[in-house]
């Protein structure tokens, strides 16, 4: 019996980032991991909180960390890159600053002893690989050419992300094991415009257009991401970019967990591949069963 891993889906994973939630849960099941959603978790505050109020930006993640601790969870997976950055960033700051812990204890009326470790989607999947997922990848993707896209928050933030900030490689082992070919490209850590999707759409279209173009130039057949904001900017906005006369793009954008799920033999619909704006079912067609 393995120790349960806490689960913080974050708000997006119940709506726009549904495939990420579906594929993470399916993958945990394949790997035999007991994923336990933190009861009554709240929003991490995302960009809005740290844009306007520095106390709120810490207090919101603090409440969730305190709840996880109270519920006996020592590790928590936060698949959304933004939630991960806010939760882990808060945990790191609290560990350094006892005065901040005291202030937050007062604001939230909850104690927190600093025992919770936050995992990103990349760390979680590498953990599963260490614990035997690799042997379960019986349906490789036939050399599908992928551009691993880390964006901002799976690569940057000192003391938050363990990977190299300029040249991250955390996704590669799992992608190769899943039968993908990794293409070298230039935009792996470029920003997609993140939370400006609605309030500065023009800027987001510029940035995403550049990312998609570079991936296409590198002959990628799909972009692989771990962030629901990057995903919706790159996937959902592709038709807007095309409508504006740029592109035209037709590049599937898939989650790392969807790729691993496919390679583990999970049906594409269970992973949510049928919910994408840019057809991603063609990625599933590349799957072939490994001959014994």
């Amino acid at each position: 019996m393995t120790t349960p891993i806490g689960y913080y889906p974050g708000c997006s994973l119940h709506g726009t980032g549904r495939e990420l939630d579906q594929s993470i849960r399916a993958l945990a099941e394949v790997a035999g991991i007991d994923l336990r959603e933190i009861q009554d978790w709240n929003c991490c505050g995302a960009t809005a909180a740290h844009s306007l109020n520095h106390d709120l930006a810490v207090a919101l993640p603090y409440r969730t960390l305190a709840l996880a601790e109270e519920q006996g969870l020592t590790e928590v997976l936060a698949p959304c890159a933004a939630c991960f950055s806010r939760l882990k960033g808060t945990a790191v700051r609290l560990a350094r600053d006892p005065d901040l812990v005291a202030k937050m204890t007062e604001i939230t009326e909850r104690p927190y002893g600093g025992t919770v470790r936050i995992l990103s989607i990349v760390e979680f999947i590498n953990r599963l690989m260490d614990e035997g997922l690799e042997a379960k990848l019986t349906h490789p993707l036939g050399g599908l050419k992928v551009a691993p896209y880390y964006g901002c928050l799976l690569a940057r933030g000192e003391d938050i992300v363990a990977d190299d900030a300029e040249h991250p490689s955390g996704m590669e082992r799992a992608l190769v094991a899943a039968g993908c070919e990794i293409v070298p490209w230039n935009f792996a850590v470029e920003c997609c415009g993140g939370g400006f999707s609605m309030s500065k759409t023009e800027a987001v279209l510029d940035l995403t257009n550049a990312i998609l173009t570079d991936a296409e130039d590198a002959q990628a057949e799909a972009i692989v991401t771990g962030c629901p904001m990057c995903h919706s900017n790159l996937d959902m906005r592709q038709r807007t970019i095309n409508a504006a006369g740029r592109g035209p793009h037709d590049l599937p954008v898939v989650y790392l967990s969807e790729i691993l799920g496919l390679a583990a033999g999970v049906e594409p619909e269970r992973l949510g591949l049928d919910r994408h704006f840019v057809d991603a079912m063609r990625v599933a067609e590349r799957v072939s069963e490994r001959s014994a």
Partner: peptide, 8 residues
């Protein structure tokens, strides 16, 4: 946008 490139 808070991408942290500058900070990095």
């Amino acid at each position: 946008v808070g991408c942290l490139t500058c900070t990095q």
